[in-house]
Design a protein around this nucleic acid. Structure first.
Lengths: 302, 302
DNA sequence: GCATCTCAATACCTTTAAGGTATTGAGAGG
DNA sequence: CCTCTCAATACCTTAAAGGTATTGAGATGC
C-alpha cells in the first residue's frame, strides 16, 4: 500500500475522469491509469466501473473513498500532534515541588506555563531535595523546585527568585509591636528551624547568618517543614525565619516582621533543577518561562 | 509522507537500533538511516536521540509511534472492509471493550451477534474510556462498551445492563462466613478501588455510595483494573466492590458476598457508545441486538 | 591513554519504479 | 462507417530507494 496511490485514487474518485485528475495532479494520464490499476490489483477489488464517459466508483470504491479520507485525517492529526510535541506544546511534564514552595512564585510560574502551553499536562509531585535528585536521575520527573542547592555534575539549575527572609513571631512577644526588627535582636529569642534533613539546608543557612551577625542562635526546636514551624510559633515555642513568600500563611497568634540591619545574604534562593543532558523541548519551554519570570521580577525590583 | 518511512520508523522504534532494524526489514543500514532522517526532516521534529548504544525515542517520537500504530490499524481496516465489500459481504465491526468487561454480558451479546451475522468479522480492542472516545472520533472503532458515561455532543449511548454490586472479601475475614453483608459494615474494612483513571469512574461511584450510607470509605489502595483488585483481596489487602458479572472470577482466598441494606443505586450500568451520525447498517444491526438483549433480560428479572 | 569496538552517518554507485511521450483500442453518436 | 472521447498499452526517461565501502564519534578495556 502506498499513500501516493491513495491520493491519486481520491482525485480520480472526485473527478470521475482520469485525464482531468491527471491534470490536477500535474502528471500525465498514462501513469495515473497505471497507479489506479495497481491499487485495484493490490486490493483485489474493482474500485471503478469504466464507462465511455469516464470512471465511476463501484460500491466497494465508495466505501474505500470514505476509509481513505479517514486515513488522511489521521495522518494529518499525527503529524500535527507530533510537531506540537516536538515544540514542547503537547505532552506531560512531571515537576517536583517542596512543602512550603506551593506558596509564592511557583504557582505563578505554573500558571504562566499553563497559559502559554494549555495542552501540556503538568503533574506535580511533592518531594524533598534528595528525593528530587533521585527522581531526576531515574527520569521520574523532569524538573524540581528547591532551595540552597549544591552543584552536581549531572544536574543543572536555574535561579527562579531570591526572597528576603522575614521573622515569624508570636503576637504576645514584646517585639511584636515593633515595626521592624534589627537582626541582632534574634539572639534573644528561641528559634524554630526547619527542615531537619536534606543538607545543605535552611538550618545551616540560618546558623551562618547568625554567626555573621556575631552571635550563636538559641535553637529551640528543629522541625520538618515551614507550616509546622509557624504553628509552633503560634503556640509560643519561639520565632522562626521564613522566606517572605511563605508569609501569606496567616495564623492567629503569628505576625511577620521585616528584618533590618541584617547581614548580607539574609535572603534565600529558589531554584529549579533538571538533568543537564535533558534536551526535551517541553523542559526547555518551561525553563524559558522561568527565566522570563525572573527577569520580569528583577526589573520590577529595580 | 510515505508509508514506507512509517513502517521503517516503527521497526527502528521497536529495536532502538538501526542495524538490527535494517536486518529485520531486509535492507542495509545506510538507506534506513537516510529514511529516518528524511522522516525527521519532513516532520521538522527530532524523533530519536542518538546514543552510542543506539537510538532512543524522544517524547515526540513516543507520541508519533502511537499515532503510526493507529494509522496502520486504520489502513488494515480500510483494505479489509473494502475487500469484503468487493465480494458483496461488507463486514467488519471494530468494537472496544474494557478490562473486566470481558466477563458477563458482553460475550453473550457478541455471541448473539455472531450467530445472526456469521459473516461479519468482529474485531475486539481493549481500551479505557478516554481512549475509546478518541478511537470513535478517529473512526478506528465503531462501538465501545463502558460504564458510568458522561454525555457528549457527538457520541450517543445505549444502555446494555444494570448490574448489582457484590463484595469481594478474603476468606479469612470474619465476615466471610456471613451469608450476606450489610452495606454499612463496609466502613470497617479497608477497600481496594479501581480504576485509577478515566473519571467519572467506579472509584467516584463507590465513594458516593459510602457517603450515602453515612460513612467515609477506608481506602486501602487504588489500582488499575478489577483483576488486580481481586488479586489484592486474595492476598489480604482488604475488600473490594465489583459488578456481579466479574464474580465469575474465582481465586483461592476470595469469596463474593451480596450486599443487603444497601443504598439505592448500589449498582452500576454497562452501556455502549457510538458516533451519533454513524449510519452504518452493521452498527445499527449490532445496536438492535443490544436492545433485544436488554429487554429480554429485563423481562427475566421481573 | 591508546587501541578497539560499536554504533550511526557520509559518499558514491546500482537498481527499481514512477513519470513522460506517442500510440492504440474500445465504445458511443451522428 | 467515420469520428470523438475516453482509458489502456508500449516504450523511454528520470527520480529516488537500495547497496557497498568508508568515516566519525562516543564508549570500553587493557
Amino acid at each position: 500500500m502506498d499513500l501516493r496511490k491513495l491520493k491519486y485514487f481520491k482525485v480520480v474518485a472526485d473527478e470521475k475522469h482520469i485525464g482531468r485528475a491527471a491534470k490536477i495532479l500535474h502528471i500525465s494520464q498514462p501513469p495515473l491509469t497505471r497507479q489506479i490499476h495497481q491499487l485495484e490489483e493490490e486490493l483485489e477489488v474493482k474500485l471503478f466501473n469504466r464507462t465511455p464517459k469516464g470512471m465511476e466508483l463501484t460500491d466497494a470504491g465508495i466505501l474505500f473513498r470514505e476509509e481513505v479520507n479517514n486515513i488522511f485525517g489521521l495522518i494529518e492529526q499525527a503529524t500535527e500532534r507530533t510537531q506540537k510535541a516536538g515544540q514542547g506544546r503537547l505532552g506531560r511534564l512531571d515537576i517536583a515541588i517542596f512543602g512550603s514552595g506551593i506558596m509564592g512564585d511557583i504557582p505563578k510560574i505554573l500558571l504562566a506555563f499553563k497559559e502559554r502551553y494549555p495542552e501540556v499536562n503538568v503533574v506535580l509531585h511533592t518531594m524533598g531535595k534528595g528525593e528530587q535528585i533521585n527522581a531526576l536521575r531515574q527520569k521520574r520527573i523532569s524538573l524540581g523546585f528547591n532551595r540552597l542547592l549544591a552543584p552536581l555534575p549531572d544536574i543543572d539549575s536555574e535561579l527562579v527568585a531570591i526572597e528576603e527572609l522575614v521573622l515569624a513571631i508570636n503576637t504576645n512577644h514584646p517585639m511584636a509591636s515593633m515595626p521592624a526588627i534589627p537582626f541582632a535582636k534574634i539572639s534573644d529569642i528561641p528559634l524554630i528551624l526547619f527542615p531537619a534533613s536534606n543538607r545543605p539546608n535552611f538550618i545551616d543557612k540560618t546558623i551562618r547568618l547568625c554567626q555573621l551577625a556575631g552571635f550563636t542562635p538559641n535553637i529551640s526546636q528543629e522541625v520538618g517543614d515551614a507550616v509546622t514551624s509557624i504553628a509552633l510559633v503560634a503556640s509560643g515555642f519561639g520565632a522562626c525565619l521564613i522566606p517572605k513568600s511563605a508569609s501569606v500563611l496567616t495564623i492567629p497568634g503569628v505576625v511577620y516582621k521585616s528584618l533590618i540591619e541584617a547581614p548580607d545574604e539574609t535572603e534565600v534562593d529558589l531554584s529549579c533543577i533538571f538533568r543537564k543532558e535533558d534536551a526535551s523541548p517541553l523542559l526547555r519551554a518551561f525553563l524559558d518561562i522561568v527565566i522570563e519570570y525572573r527577569t520580569a521580577n528583577e526589573k520590577l525590583n529595580r
